[in-house]
Design a protein around this nucleic acid. Structure first.
Lengths: 136, 136
DNA sequence: TTAAAGTGGATAAAAACAGTCCTGTATTTT
DNA sequence: AAAATACAGGACTGTTTTTATCCACTTTAA
């Protein structure tokens, strides 16, 4: 089981809820009430999404968050990347030598790249709108 | 960053090493020496792979492990599934209601299914042989 | 019968995560 | 101007997962 963090899951739920009102301004507290997710958590998710440009925020009384684009133009890959950083399956990827303990002897440098590319491709093709549609 | 467990990473390294000798019988200690991964860890990985039918084991003196099929016929999806269980992105998937705290109110039941299908498809297409080829 | 090699399960240390809370800043309303 | 509402950013903590290792047991060849 490849795991997404639970926050990513929440992010999709919250974004889907926002999409339902066409992405219009909504306060964190409202979204928390609508989704049933605790407010501090919703707030955390929204802050992260905002920092990554998926949604924009309005401060002050009557403030809130709104979608920056239509649900059909938000691929899942973007949501995941916003919540968890770049999409890739290991730390042993070309460019980042940091955490590979085997280093020189590791015969796998860059090997995951084709896999990662495949996954990114797959995630690019599914949008928030698709997920909203695919109801059971 | 979608994370694979480190053991899965090791599994690929070890399997790739086995593929290099055409999947012939090799003891865990030998594979450990060749890959530079600590023996107890290699051993654990091999046990898991064996239990899942990707490799077969021979007990006793002069025993070891060997590949059950050619590298070109081992998709990454199989390796990942063997090490981490079924490939899917959340616990909130059709069929398993266990860990979804929102349950009834969660509007996302089954929504990840298209995403998971996309990922599975992508992982099915990349084989161990592909990864061995794609050297930097 | 002994030594090499795999099997299965248990465990302990380390790391990551989720969830919460607090302080600060912006904006609107009164 | 002050007060109230709402976002921003970060710090903290308990829990869960992961990782790596070890041990007692089984199998088999010499």
């Amino acid at each position: 089981m490849i795991k997404l963090s639970r926050l990513t899951d929440y992010a999709v739920v919250v974004l889907a809820e926002m999409a339902r009102t066409n992405g219009e301004l909504a306060a964190a507290s409202v979204l928390a009430a609508k989704t049933g997710i605790p407010e501090p958590t919703v707030s955390k998710v929204l802050k992260t999404l905002s920092r990554n440009g998926l949604i924009s925020s309005v401060r002050g009384v009557a403030g809130g968050y709104k979608l920056e684009r239509a649900a059909g133009e938000i691929p899942v890959s973007l949501i995941i990347a916003a919540m968890e950083g770049p999409i890739s399956l290991t730390s042993c990827v070309s460019g980042s030598h940091e955490s590979c303990a085997l280093e020189g002897s590791c015969s796998m440098h860059g090997r995951w790249n084709p896999v990662n590319a495949a996954i990114r491709g797959a995630l690019d093709k599914v949008t928030l709108a698709d997920m909203n549609r695919g109801r059971l």
